[in-house]
Simulated assay, not measured.
Amino acid sequence: MNGKRWKRSKTAVYNIGYHLVWCPKYRRRVLVGKVAERLKELLLQKAREIEVEIVEMEVMPDHVHLFVKTTPTNSPHFITQQLKGYTSRVLRKEFPFLKSRLPSLWTRSYYCESVGHVSEETIRKYIEDQKGK
Rank of each mutant, 00 (worst) to 15 (best):
R5T: 09
G132S: 15
Y111F: 06
V32W: 09
R38V: 07
S109L: 12
V35Y: 04
E58W: 02
G3D: 14
V118A: 00
V55L: 13
L31M: 08
V32M: 11
R92W: 09
E94A: 01
Y18E: 12
E128L: 12
V13T: 13
K7M: 08
Y26T: 04
L66E: 03
G3R: 15
Y26E: 05
Y111M: 05
V115P: 03
E53L: 11
V115H: 05
R28G: 00
F67K: 04
S119K: 07
D62G: 02
D62Y: 02
K131F: 14
A36R: 12
A12P: 02
T11W: 15
A36Y: 07
L83N: 02
E121F: 05
K93N: 12
D62E: 11
K7N: 12
G116A: 08
N74Y: 00
R8M: 13
P24Y: 05
F67Q: 06
S75K: 05
K10N: 15
G85V: 01
L20H: 03
V90F: 04
T122S: 13
K84T: 07
H117T: 11
E41T: 10
R5D: 06
C112R: 04
Q82T: 01
S119L: 07
E58H: 01
E51Y: 12
A47V: 03
D129G: 08
E128H: 11
Q82V: 02
K40D: 10
Y14R: 07
